[in-house]
């Protein structure tokens, strides 16, 4: 009785097994950290997102740095865990950058999926073959280079004060307010504020141009990024740049930024070296 049941189970499972892909589960994917220059099969150990095992898939003189994962994106409502994933992503890219020298970093949550006729690794290799030339061209452009972030902030209070002192029009208006009755003084203050806002915009543009011209000669490539709200309330982000420099060549730019940082009312945030996320 027992034997016959076992046989039956065997028969049942056979067509089922044939339906699924021979090598991998159909819903398996590869989380892609970066493409590195070099052909070495390396295992980075359990250093990936959530401690996943990170290894390389070589193709010609390139390799993809990946871990095996289900074919669905990493998502969470918890900001802390997403932040941990993003940092893990960056750590792996950093490690690969260190080992291979040149990497094309991927954005977070790039997952290569499998198809009916190709598992994810095959899909990955197909892509590396198809895009081999453009990938090599990108490698060449970023070889030996690193990305630095330059953010210039200004203190809006100090700047407003400075503008009030420098602009005759604003100064005159401000003096007039003192001699006016309260109701009228209120209208004057509105007028003053508008004038100040306008003047600040003009000055912001001017400083942006000046700083940009000073920074430009020190970078191989520059990207102007969107300015963000500064964490510090009274500070305003005046410019946000991504600069591509030689890996160890940040000294000149650092000197230039030092000068800007020492100007009254300005401060500079200089970050890096990062893998060239913004130049791929």
């Amino acid at each position: 009785m027992k034997i016959s049941m076992k046989k039956k189970a065997d028969v049942d499972s056979k067509p089922h097994r044939e339906r699924s892909s021979p090598e991998t589960e159909p819903d398996e994917g590869r989380y892609l950290y970066c493409i590195a220059e070099g052909n070495i099969a390396v295992n980075f150990g359990k250093s990936g997102l959530q401690g996943e095992e990170v290894y390389t898939i070589p193709y010609k003189d390139l390799c993809a740095v990946v871990h095996t994962c289900p074919s669905k994106p990493y998502q969470s409502n918890d900001q802390a865990s997403v932040q941990a994933w993003v940092l893990a992503h960056q750590k792996v890219v950093d490690k690969a950058w260190d080992v291979f020298g040149t990497v094309i970093p991927m954005g977070f949550d790039t997952i290569i999926r499998g198809d009916v006729d190709a598992d994810p690794e095959k899909n990955m290799k197909n892509w590396l073959r198809e895009d081999y030339a453009p990938l090599k061209a990108k490698m060449k452009a970023i070889r030996g280079r690193a990305e630095y972030g330059v953010q210039v902030f200004w203190d809006s209070e100090i700047m407003a004060q400075k503008m009030t002192e420098e602009s005759a029009e604003i100064k005159k208006l401000r003096d007039e307010i003192r001699s006016k009755p309260r109701g009228i003084a209120y209208m004057y203050r509105q007028k003053l504020e508008n004038l100040l806002t306008k003047e600040m915009e003009i000055q912001a543009d001017r400083y942006f141009q000046t700083f940009y011209e000073k920074i430009k000669p020190h970078a191989a490539e520059l990207h102007i990024e969107k300015t963000k709200k500064a964490e510090n309330q009274s500070m305003r982000m005046l410019m946000n740049l991504s600069c591509l420099l030689a890996k160890d060549g940040s000294e000149e730019l650092g000197d230039e930024l030092e000068k800007i940082d020492s100007l009254k009312g300005f401060s500079v945030r200089f970050t890096g070296p990062w893998p060239p996320y913004s130049f791929v």
């Binding site: 493409i35 932040q83 993003v86 940092l87 992503h89 960056q90 094309i104 970093p105 991927m106 954005g107 977070f108 790039t110 892509w127 895009d131 990108k138 990305e147 630095y148 972030g149 953010q151 990024e225 963000k228 964490e231 991504s242 940040s250 650092g254 000197d255 930024l257 030092e258 940082d261 500079v268 945030r269 200089f270 970050t271 890096g272 070296p273 990062w274 996320y277 913004s278 791929v280």
Partner: peptide
Amino acid sequence: MEPQRDTHATLVDLLDRVLDRGLVIH
């Protein structure tokens, strides 16, 4: 001026990079 990497202030900048940039494939 030395570039900074591992401070709290650089975190936002880093997150931006990893989330918004990097190579995008078809």
